[in-house]
Design a protein around this nucleic acid. Structure first.
Length: 290
DNA sequence: AGACTCTCCTGCGTGC
DNA sequence: TGCACGCAGGAGAGTC
């Protein structure tokens, strides 16, 4: 389940192994892999062939590579199970290989988009002409992520504290803050000792600050660990066996002792998924009755 | 606008 | 052993 740290590792891999190379051919093996693209698979391929990939960019969980001279960018999202791999051209096809991109050079490697559950996808999109990084237009509503130097702490904290919904729902709202998914949301909430369903507009400013700092810490720590393993030819993205999984304090720890107070952790059904929390450290304050 | 739900998808683990 | 089902969950679409 790639979230911001995993996607950043992929971005670095793409920047190292794909940027600067010129596309020679594109093969779309599954139409759903390009469903965001406004056009056919043939059109997707035609917009890439002959183009040179620019430096890899990221916002939240989205990745893109500008296509210099075209006003457009190659956009990617890994969804739940997507991988972007650099593989030798002769390597056997992965079971869920969806898109193959070959290059007009002699490196002998190609870019592959592999995605079991097809929640992810690629597209060529117009870039925002005002954005120096050529961000695709459809990312206009995606907020900056907390590791972005241009993330506005004050604006985020104020917006968060205006939301009436639960604080976890707000954390997962990519228009408020991007890059946070179910795993790191639970981790940040555990660190900040906040219940996932705590109405965001009941947070005091220091609590909101602690939550943001916690999200930054946990994602930075995960990135630091994940960043060590992409030295190979592979653009590493294996969300399932994430390198950080041994360090999780909340996610997936139902029944195990809280790493702070030893109370058994709980799992609650929440929004068609799960929330893991410590029932002692992360209490829901009694709602005020009016 | 904000809050909220539904839907997309496949493989794996579980229970009968 | 086989089959049905729950679960994993990002995010766009749609409703109110």
């Amino acid at each position: 389940m790639p979230e911001l740290p995993e996607v950043e590792v992929v971005r670095r891999g793409l920047d190292k192994w794909a940027s600067g190379r010129t596309v020679s051919s594109v093969q779309v093996l599954h139409p759903r892999a390009i469903r965001r693209h406004q056009g056919t698979a043939q059109d997707f391929a035609a917009q890439l062939v002959g183009r040179t990939l620019g430096p890899a960019q990221r916002r939240g969980k989205y990745l893109w590579l500008p296509l210099p001279g075209t006003g457009s960018s190659l956009l990617g999202h890994l969804g739940m199970s997507g991988q972007l791999l650099i593989q030798p051209e002769e390597a056997p096809e992965e079971t869920h290989l969806r898109v193959r991109v070959r290059f007009a050079d002699t490196l002998g490697t190609e870019l592959r988009f592999v995605d079991q559950r097809t929640f992810g996808g690629l597209a060529v999109e117009d870039a925002d002409p005002a954005d120096p990084d050529a961000a695709p237009v459809s990312l206009a509503h995606i907020a900056r992520d907390p590791l972005d130097p241009r993330f506005d702490d004050d604006a985020f904290l104020a917006a968060l504290r205006r939301r009436s919904s639960g604080v976890k729902r707000a954390l997962l709202d990519q228009s408020l803050i991007s890059g946070v998914g179910n795993i790191y949301a639970d981790e940040a909430l555990w660190r900040a000792r906040l219940h996932y369903d705590r109405p965001a507009d009941t947070l005091r400013r220091p609590q909101a600050e602690l939550l943001l700092a916690s999200a930054r810490e946990v994602m930075s720590a995960a990135l630091a660990v994940g960043g060590t393993s992409f030295d190979s030819l592979y653009v590493n993205v294996n969300g399932e066996s994430g390198y950080f999984s041994r360090s999780l304090d909340a996610y997936g720890r139902e029944g195990e002792p809280c790493n702070r107070c030893a109370t058994p952790m709980r799992r609650a059904a929440w929004m068609n998924r799960s929330s893991y929390f410590c029932p002692r450290c992360q209490k829901l304050p009694r709602p005020r009755t009016s």
